[in-house]
Every structure is written in structure tokens, then in C-alpha cells.
Design a protein around this nucleic acid. Structure first.
Length: 311
DNA sequence: ATCCAGGCTCCTG
DNA sequence: CAGGAGCATGGA
């Protein structure tokens, strides 16, 4: 059992406490263990599996993140992979000041950001976990979606044992690719969801679909490819780009939660339409993912109960 | 009870 | 090409 440590310095204002708060109330947080001070989860590295822990580095100003990775055997510990994972997950390398400048054009969003500076679109595990979560979450309420994800993890996930503790790892594409509809129906997945998930896993395993490689494409091209997969519509593709591939300027404008919270915040007196969400988000040009994430945060934290005054 | 959830596909007219 | 049913369950 070996532990290696490092620190990561985010560029600009970064609110680790807000990130933890979001994760603690998020239904997708199943693999992770998150408490008031620490984010922990198993990650797959080129050297093997390890457990990453992230905390605030004590006393550091400006804030730095203290990272450690622990593995069962010394040769499995991969500090570089852990650092990369943390930078990607918490989006520590983006220029947050440019975001702050950009959203001055929208006083409603700016009012939220002013009270909660330093939030960034947190990524969900590896891109495969993100797209599985997106498909799981299609149409159903988030409580039930969390139940399905937990069932998937417990039935088909792997296990990582470190120092007497046991952690579950999200099932890899090869595992899901070997399943069929009848394996997932008993876990309460609909036939469609089961087919979509197995189909995406098989596209990866059998047809060479490389989700990570999509990050190098322009957003519209990446979306165009993703929506060719059965069960992946525009919402799901945009969700993956924003929450799994680190695209800074993508918004799943059809999202029910966004339509609800933005309709309220912008004083429409009803849910915003997808077109209205896209229209408002044009004001965040270059940073739509950040804006969308702020509204999800606002929805989740109950920050918006009426139209937000902009005086 | 009825409607609708952090959608998508397939079918109809 | 717009509109609606069905999916599977649970919360409001």
C-alpha cells in the first residue's frame, strides 16, 4: 500500500467548497465519496487502479488542492494520472476571469455568480460514466436515476480494496458491452435504456468509438457524431460534452431543470422553452457550459424562488 | 389519482 | 414535418 502526494493550483478564483457542496447534493454522485472537506474516488490509471483523494491544502492562499493517490501496490501508483484527473474533473485550468468578464452581459446570471464565485462545470468520472449517467437520467426523476446508477454499480461494477476499505468502480465499457437487455431489466432499467447503454458500450468496444477523441473536435461535429448512436439525442450529446469532455461552451438547452430554473429567474412566469434558453445563453458566448452549470447549481441549492432583480 | 420527471425513438396524419 | 404514444418508476 503506497501513497503519493501533489498539489494543484487552480487558475483564478476557484471555490472547492462549492464544488463539494454541489457533489454532495448531486444524484450522480454514487462512485465518489464526498464529505465537508474531501472528495475521494477510485480511478483507472495506466498503472492500475488507485484511490484519489482531494482536499484543500491547509493555509494555502490563493487556494491550492492537495491530492493524494493510494494503491494496493507501489507499482500501481500513478501520480501523474491522478493530477490529470483532478485538473479535468474540477476544471482547474480554465481562465475564470474571462468567464467573469463574459457574463457581465447577463445581470441575472451575474447576480448568482457574484454570490457564489469560483464554481466550474464539474466532470462526472470518465466520459463513459458521463454518457451512461446521461442515458440513465433521460426522462426520469433524479432520485430514481440515482437508484438505477447505484444498482448498476453494485451489480456490474468492479471492486477496489485499499487498506481494509472497499470501493466500487464504475463498470467499464467492455463489461456493459457484454450485457443484454435482460441483464438490466431486473435492475429496473427500461428496455430502451438498457438497449441504448449496451449499444453505446458496444460502439466503443466493437466499433472503435473513442469518446475522449471527440474532445478534439469542434462541438457541433462532436454532437453530430454522437447523435448517430441510438438513444443519444442532442440533449445527451450536449450533456456529455459539458459534463464529461470539458467543453466550456455547450448548453443542453432542452434540459427540463434548466428550462424550469431559467424561466423562474428570468421572470417568464413558466418554464423557458428550449429556444428561449438558447437565446439567453447567447449572452454567455464562449462560456455556456459555465452558465448552465451555475443554473443547475442554483436549482439544486434552491437559490431561485422568484424572478431575480437586476438593479 | 393524475401528471410529469435533468429524452428518445417510432409511428401517425 | 409536426404531434403523440410508449417506456419504467416515483414524487408532487
Amino acid at each position: 500500500m503506497t501513497v503519493l502526494r501533489a498539489t494543484v493550483t487552480p487558475t483564478g478564483s476557484f471555490a472547492f467548497d462549492l464544488a463539494l457542496r454541489y457533489l454532495r447534493s448531486s444524484p450522480s454522485t454514487i462512485v465518489e465519496r464526498v464529505d465537508e472537506t474531501t472528495y475521494a474516488r477510485p480511478i483507472r490509471t495506466p498503472n492500475g487502479w488507485g484511490l484519489v483523494r482531494v482536499r484543500r491544502a491547509p493555509g494555502a492562499r490563493p487556494l491550492r488542492l492537495a491530492i493524494e493517490i493510494e494503491a494496493a501496490r507501489a507499482k500501481s501508483v500513478d501520480l501523474e494520472a491522478a493530477i490529470h484527473f483532478v485538473r479535468r474533473t474540477f476544471q482547474t485550468d480554465v481562465d475564470a476571469r474571462a468567464f467573469a468578464r463574459a457574463i457581465r452581459r447577463d445581470p441575472v446570471l451575474a447576480a448568482i455568480v457574484r454570490r457564489h464565485p469560483g464554481l466550474r462545470p464539474i466532470q462526472i468520472g470518465e466520459p463513459f460514466e458521463t454518457i451512461m449517467w446521461a442515458i440513465i437520467g433521460q426522462q426520469i426523476n433524479t432520485t430514481f436515476a440515482a437508484k438505477l446508477k447505484r444498482a448498476l454499480l453494485e451489480r456490474h461494477g468492479g471492486t477496489l480494496r485499499i487498506g481494509g476499505a472497499t470501493y466500487r468502480t464504475f463498470p467499464e465499457p467492455a463489461v456493459i458491452a457484454r450485457l443484454s437487455r435482460s441483464d438490466l431489466r431486473p435492475l429496473q432499467f427500461s428496455r430502451q435504456k438498457a438497449d441504448y447503454m449496451v449499444g453505446v458500450a458496444r460502439a466503443i468496444i466493437e466499433h472503435g468509438l473513442d469518446l475522449d477523441a471527440l474532445a478534439a473536435l469542434p462541438a457541433e461535429q462532436a454532437i453530430e457524431r454522437l447523435v448517430q448512436l441510438p438513444g443519444v439525442g442532442r440533449w445527451t450529446a450536449e450533456y456529455l460534452l459539458m459534463r464529461g469532455l470539458g467543453f466550456p461552451d455547450v448548453i443542453p438547452a432542452a434540459d427540463g431543470g434548466l428550462r424550469k430554473v431559467m424561466g423562474l429567474a428570468y421572470g417568464l412566469g413558466r418554464n423557458a422553452t428550449e429556444d428561449e434558453v438558447r437565446g439567453i445563453a447567447e449572452r454567455w458566448n464562449g462560456w455556456r457550459s459555465f452558465g448552465a452549470f451555475y443554473w443547475w447549481f442554483a436549482l439544486q441549492q434552491g437559490l431561485v424562488t422568484r424572478s431575480i432583480p437586476t438593479g
